[in-house]
Computed example of a mutant assay.
Amino acid sequence: MAAAQVSNGLLSTLSRRQHEILMELVKGHSAKTIAEHLGIHPRTVEAHIYRIYRKTGTHGIVQLMEVFFAQL
């Protein structure tokens, strides 16, 4: 299954934009790089990342990646 097609479990609660940001995080991009790529402010990206953590019950990028890859 392709990463962009992950839509079950905890990750299914993410908005479209949060999914976009998650895919950028999986690629190893920083908030600044993601912001430039999506044409939004880095603080907006950070707010989305915070919401992703809350929705997935994670507390950092390592835990988030564990949840993400566990659902592939």
Score class of each variant (00 low, 15 high):
residue 54 R to W: 10
residue 56 T to N: 00
residue 55 K to M: 06
residue 54 R to V: 13
residue 61 I to K: 13
residue 39 G to S: 01
residue 45 V to E: 01
residue 33 T to H: 12
residue 53 Y to I: 01
residue 23 M to Y: 15
residue 40 I to N: 05
residue 1 M to N: 11
residue 41 H to C: 07
residue 10 L to Y: 11
residue 25 L to R: 10
residue 51 R to Y: 14
residue 31 A to C: 08
residue 14 L to N: 01
residue 52 I to V: 09
residue 49 I to Q: 07
residue 23 M to F: 15
residue 72 L to S: 08
residue 2 A to I: 10
residue 67 V to Y: 08
residue 45 V to F: 00
residue 69 F to E: 14
residue 71 Q to T: 11
residue 54 R to K: 15
residue 45 V to R: 01
residue 72 L to W: 09
residue 2 A to S: 11
residue 61 I to Y: 11
residue 29 H to G: 02
residue 48 H to A: 12
residue 16 R to T: 15
residue 41 H to Q: 13
residue 67 V to E: 09
residue 71 Q to F: 06
residue 47 A to Q: 14
residue 59 H to M: 10
residue 27 K to P: 08
residue 4 A to P: 05
residue 38 L to T: 00
residue 32 K to P: 07
residue 23 M to I: 11
residue 59 H to P: 05
residue 65 M to T: 03
residue 34 I to H: 01
residue 17 R to S: 07
residue 27 K to S: 12
residue 49 I to S: 01
residue 41 H to W: 10
residue 55 K to Q: 09
residue 41 H to T: 10
residue 11 L to I: 12
residue 21 I to K: 02
residue 2 A to C: 07
residue 19 H to W: 09
residue 38 L to E: 04
residue 41 H to K: 14
residue 49 I to P: 04
residue 43 R to K: 14
residue 23 M to E: 12
residue 38 L to Y: 06
residue 70 A to G: 09
residue 5 Q to E: 08
residue 42 P to N: 05
residue 6 V to C: 06
residue 13 T to R: 15
residue 47 A to E: 09
residue 48 H to L: 02
residue 62 V to G: 07
residue 54 R to C: 10
residue 70 A to S: 12
residue 43 R to C: 09
residue 3 A to L: 14
residue 51 R to F: 13
residue 13 T to P: 00
residue 60 G to P: 04
residue 21 I to Y: 00
residue 47 A to D: 11
residue 66 E to F: 08
residue 70 A to N: 10
residue 15 S to N: 05
residue 63 Q to F: 07
residue 57 G to Q: 05
residue 46 E to M: 15
residue 66 E to M: 07
residue 11 L to W: 05
residue 30 S to D: 00
residue 22 L to E: 03
residue 26 V to T: 03
residue 14 L to A: 01
residue 35 A to F: 03
residue 63 Q to P: 11
residue 50 Y to V: 05
residue 66 E to K: 13
residue 55 K to S: 06
residue 8 N to Y: 00
residue 72 L to E: 08
residue 4 A to N: 09
residue 12 S to W: 06
residue 52 I to T: 04
residue 42 P to E: 05
residue 20 E to M: 12
residue 56 T to E: 04
residue 29 H to R: 15
residue 42 P to Y: 00
residue 24 E to N: 12
residue 50 Y to T: 09
residue 18 Q to R: 01
residue 29 H to P: 07
residue 28 G to D: 04
residue 51 R to E: 13
residue 18 Q to G: 02
residue 26 V to S: 06
residue 38 L to M: 08
residue 34 I to V: 10
residue 11 L to Y: 03
residue 45 V to S: 02
residue 53 Y to V: 03
residue 29 H to M: 12
residue 11 L to M: 02
residue 15 S to G: 06
residue 58 T to N: 05
residue 43 R to I: 11
residue 48 H to Y: 15
residue 9 G to K: 05
residue 24 E to G: 04
residue 24 E to V: 03
residue 50 Y to M: 11
residue 71 Q to A: 11
residue 41 H to E: 14
residue 64 L to K: 03
residue 53 Y to E: 04
residue 28 G to E: 03
residue 6 V to M: 09
residue 46 E to C: 14
